[in-house]
Design a protein around this nucleic acid. Structure first.
Lengths: 229, 229
DNA sequence: CCAAAAGTGTTATGGATACACCCATGA
DNA sequence: TCATGGGTGTATCCATAACACTTTTGG
C-alpha cells in the first residue's frame, strides 16, 4: 500500500463553531446570531465557519472569533468534535471551541452586520443543530477549568474588583459563594495585585481594583501549588 | 444564500485514532501497531481508520476498536480533534478517542494480523504524527475522569481483587496509594460487592474477589454523592 | 442620617493523610 | 517455620464551611 490508500475515502466539510463567552451585568453571556441562509435561515446559531484547507483548526476558530467580535485577545480551548450524521443537510463535521473574551472590547457594529446579540447564559434560546449541546458541554468544561486554572480573568478587563470577580464565579458555577471565604482564598493565593484606585460605579464606598499578576501565578505553579476555585 | 453556501468549501478526510488501553502485569498498556503503508510505513501507530460518510464519528471509533481487538464491550470517550496542517501527507483531520477494554478479552490472533502489540504506558515508543500528543492528552483526561467516575472497572474483568484495583489506580496516577486509605474509601462508598471466592494467583493467603455494583452506584449518585478517587 | 455595598476573623467540622501490626497459607 | 502478600483502625492535620458586624459615602 501507499498513498493510494488515501484514495476513495469519504471526505467531509469541516466547520468550527465558537461558543463566545462574555461577562456583563453580573452574568455570563453568549454571542448568538440569526442564521442568514438556508437551511434553518433565521434560527439562532453559534458563530461558525468552515475550516480552510491551509489552516489549522484552532486557527480557523480564532479567525471566526475575530471576525464576529473584532476582539483579538481571546482565550480559546477546544470542546470537541461533533459529527452526528443528521446534524446538517450536508454531512458536516464541526469542531467546537469556547472563547473567553472581554465583552467591553466587542465591536458593536458587528452586531448589526451579523444580526448577532449577547444573550444571558440563563436565557439561552433554542439553537440550531446540536449547538445547545455544545453550549452545555462548554459550561461543564468551563466549570472544571475555571475551578483549577485562572482563566476566568480573560472575561474581565485589565483591572476588576473583588465583588465583580465573585459575581463572575457565581455565574460560572450558578451558585452563591461566601464573600469572606472567597476573598480569603483569592488573596492568600497572592496572585492578585491591589491597585490604589477604586471603582465607584456600583457603590458609594467604592471597591478597590485588582489585577491578575501572571508572574506571581507562575511562581505559585513552580512551587508545585495550583490555583483552586 | 442557500445550500449553495456549502459549495466551493474545502473538504477533508476525517480519521479516528483510538488510544486502546488495557491493564496487565500491574500496569496500563496501550495497543500500537506497525503502520503497514507509506508514508511512515513501519512506524509505530495508534489504531486508526477513516470515518465513512454514513456513520457517526463515535461509531467509527467503535468500529476501529472492535476491528483491532475483537472486543465489543468497551468504554469509549472522545479526547478531541487534531488537525494541524502538517500532521499527514494529505490533509487529514483526526478525532481521537480513548477506549478502556478488558485486555483478557483481546483476540490475540489480531496481534499478528495487524502487527500490533500491547506496550506499557511507561515505555511507549515514539509514534507517528501527533499520536504521542494524543496519548499524553488521553492520560491527563483519564486521570481526571477516573478520579471522579467509576470507569476504571472497564479495564478489569467482571470480578477483581482490591489489591489489583489499587495497582490499577496507581498505574493511572503514576504514584503509590496508601493501602488502608484506599480500601477505606472504596468500601465505605459501598459500591463494591464482596464475593466468597478468592484469587490465589498472587499470594498464598489469597485475596477476595469483588465486583462493581452498578445499582448501588446509581443510588449513590441519586443521593447527590459521587464517586471519588 | 440612612441606605447600600465593601470589607474583615474566628470557630467548627469533616475529609485526607500518615502510620504498624497481625493473619493466612503454600512451600 | 518462614516468607509473602492480604487485611485491618486510629490519631493528626488542614482545608472547607458557616457565620455577623463595622466601614464608607453619596444622596
Amino acid at each position: 500500500m501507499s498513498a493510494a490508500f488515501y484514495k476513495n475515502k469519504d471526505s467531509f466539510l469541516v466547520a468550527v463553531d465558537c461558543i463566545i463567552i462574555g461577562f456583563r451585568d453580573n452574568e455570563l453571556h453568549i454571542l448568538v446570531a440569526r442564521r442568514p441562509f438556508e437551511p434553518f435561515k433565521g434560527g439562532w446559531s453559534l458563530m461558525g465557519g468552515f475550516v480552510n484547507a491551509p489552516e489549522n483548526i484552532k486557527e480557523a476558530a480564532k479567525r471566526v472569533v475575530v471576525e464576529f467580535t473584532g476582539i483579538d485577545d481571546i482565550y480559546l480551548e477546544q470542546v470537541g468534535a461533533y459529527g452526528d450524521i443528521d446534524r446538517d443537510v450536508e454531512r458536516v463535521i464541526s469542531v467546537a471551541y469556547y472563547a473567553l473574551v472581554d465583552i467591553d472590547q466587542f465591536d458593536t457594529s458587528l452586531a448589526q452586520k451579523y444580526d448577532a446579540r449577547w444573550v444571558r447564559i440563563t436565557q439561552l434560546p433554542e439553537l440550531i443543530f446540536d449547538h445547545n449541546m455544545m453550549v452545555k458541554d462548554t459550561m461543564t468544561l468551563l466549570q472544571r477549568r475555571t475551578a483549577v486554572k485562572p482563566i476566568g480573568f480573560n472575561l474581565l478587563g485589565e483591572q476588576f474588583t473583588l465583588p465583580t470577580l465573585q459575581c463572575l464565579y457565581e455565574s460560572i458555577f450558578q451558585e452563591p459563594i461566601d464573600k469572606r471565604n472567597f476573598r480569603k482564598k483569592l488573596l492568600t493565593m497572592d496572585i492578585l495585585e491591589k491597585l490604589d484606585e477604586k471603582d465607584k460605579s456600583s457603590s458609594k464606598k467604592g471597591a478597590f481594583y485588582y489585577k491578575f499578576n501572571k508572574e506571581k501565578y507562575d511562581q505559585l505553579i513552580q512551587q508545585g501549588l495550583h490555583f483552586s476555585l
